[in-house]
Amino acid sequence: MEYEEAKKKITEALQKKLKTKSKFYFSDLAKILGEKPRVAKKLINQMVQEGVLEYWSSGSTSMYGMPGTGKQAHAEHED
C-alpha cells in the first residue's frame, strides 16, 4: 500500500471513532490498513515519524492515537 493512502485510511478511521476513544492497539491499525503486521508496522512507523500518530503507554502496553486527542491529552502534554 502507498504511504499516502495508508495515512488517509488511518486518519479517516481514527477520526470517525474519536467520539468514543482516542487510543488504539497496533492490531486495530493493522486491521484498518488490511495489511500483515510487518507491512503495517513500516507504514505506522512513518506516521509516527511525521507526527500523524503518537504513542501512548500504560507502562506495559502500548497504544497509538492522533496527537492532541483524548481526554487526558491536556494533562499528559502538560500545557
Partner: peptide
Amino acid sequence: DKMCEIPLAIAA
C-alpha cells in the same frame, strides 16, 4: 466521563 475514555477502561 470527563477524564477517561470508557471503552479503554473496559478493555483494560
